[in-house]
Computed example of a mutant assay.
Amino acid sequence: MTLAQKTIAIATAQIGVEEMPRNSNSGPEVEIYLRSVGLGKGYAWCMAFIYWCTQNAAAQMNAKNPLKKTGGVLDQYHSRPLLVKKTPQPGDVFIMDFNNGTGHAGFVEKIAGNTIYTIEGNTNDSGGREGYKVARRKRDIKSIKGFLRL
């Protein structure tokens, strides 16, 4: 099993985790994700979720986590240029850039044409970047800045 496959398995097991209370960026699991990157409750946590999943997978495989320990989506993207890819494959981390210093990220689970099927933290049923749960989404590849290959 590759690091990407193990990471996706861990992320899949987190589907359904929700903030408590909703829209608070807190709750037992959310605070564990945030602590994994050195943050306390109240911060946006999509990248912390990605880091936590990848860190757990790496630890279970006795491997090194290739990601930077950060809760910042664009910080992660800009600090790992050797991981950046333009076309996705399952297990990649997708990066969205909203051009105002904010972003959103999640895992690519599968690709179908111009659509990626994802597992994301801090999202909601409409696919927002400030949601309240870990969920599966689908996104147009054109909305993605780039992909990080684990």
Rank of each mutant, 00 (worst) to 15 (best):
M1F: 01
T2I: 00
L3F: 03
K6W: 01
T7L: 01
I8G: 00
A9W: 00
A9T: 06
I10H: 07
I10T: 05
T12S: 02
A13R: 07
E18Y: 12
M20P: 03
N25D: 08
S26R: 12
V30C: 11
E31R: 06
L34H: 05
L34M: 04
V37M: 01
V37D: 03
V37H: 06
G42Q: 10
C46N: 11
M47W: 08
Q60K: 09
M61R: 09
K64R: 14
K64M: 10
K64E: 10
N65P: 05
K69E: 05
G72A: 11
V73Q: 03
L74R: 01
L74M: 10
Q76W: 04
Y77T: 04
H78N: 09
S79K: 02
S79G: 00
R80V: 04
R80K: 02
P81F: 00
L82E: 06
L83S: 01
K86I: 02
T87E: 04
P88K: 04
P88C: 01
P88V: 00
Q89I: 00
G91R: 00
V93Y: 03
D97N: 08
F98K: 00
N100I: 03
G101Q: 05
A105H: 12
V108G: 03
G113S: 08
G113I: 08
T115L: 12
Y117D: 03
I119L: 07
G121H: 13
N122S: 11
D125K: 15
D125P: 14
G127W: 13
V134T: 13
R136Y: 03
R139C: 10
S143C: 10
F147P: 05
F147V: 03
